[in-house]
């Protein structure tokens, strides 16, 4: 399967919604073509051999289908959400340790994501991606090593110089709305 050409304007969140609501295999295939090769690259950089990376990639993508109803586009972009699924698979399969996860925030129809919030978060995510492309090579490599490699926590440089504050504020607002809807 060939790596698909960059489809920058693709509305990934809408595709995940179609997978969730309509069990739409075409939407899933489009997500798969874009994300599966990237997840596989991530797993191989994290130390998985080719065969294990292939197997885990398929499991990660299957999880995307199964947990599509959990995706909240006002709190994460699709790539961020897939990244967290892949990261958890990495911890499980490569580091062989349990992964404690924060308590879920319950959300149902009464807490449908607000479309304006979704838009802003997606725009902020694109801004972050652009800022990362502009980072000096040395700093970029360090961040890549922290996320894809095995930099221990005491070596991690948390000062990334990236515009993370705005994304944080957007997620914070979405959480407040959620809490409010929950009463």
């Amino acid at each position: 399967m060939n790596v698909v050409v960059e489809a920058e304007e693709q509305d990934w969140a809408a595709l995940v919604r179609r997978v969730d609501r309509d069990k739409d295999k075409a939407a899933f295939a489009a997500l798969f073509r874009h994300f599966a090769p990237r997840v596989k690259a991530f797993l191989m950089k994290s130390g998985a051999g080719e065969a294990l990376a292939e197997e885990c990639t398929q499991e990660v993508m299957a999880t995307l289908w199964q947990k599509a109803h959990m995706f909240d586009p006002s709190r994460a972009s699709v790539s961020t959400w897939i990244y967290t699924i892949a990261r958890n698979r990495k911890i499980d399969a490569l580091r062989r340790q349990r992964r404690p996860e924060p308590e879920d925030l319950p959300w149902g129809p009464e807490a449908e994501p607000d479309q304006a919030e979704v838009m802003t978060l997606q725009q902020e995510s694109e801004k972050l991606a652009k800022a990362m492309k502009k980072l000096p090579e040395k700093q970029r490599k360090l961040i890549e090593k922290a996320y894809f490699g095995d930099l221990s926590h005491s070596e991690i440089a948390a000062e990334t110089g990236l515009p993370l504050g705005t994304i944080k504020s957007r997620i914070r607002l979405a959480l407040e709305r959620l809490r409010h809807a929950m009463g």
Binding site: R38, M44, S79
Partner: peptide, 17 residues
């Protein structure tokens, strides 16, 4: 986590499945 999402999204070294 958004930083991880942005890293994964970059196509440069995607690996064929």
């Amino acid at each position: 986590e958004a930083v991880g999402g942005a890293l994964i999204d970059e196509a440069a070294d995607a690996v064929d499945v």
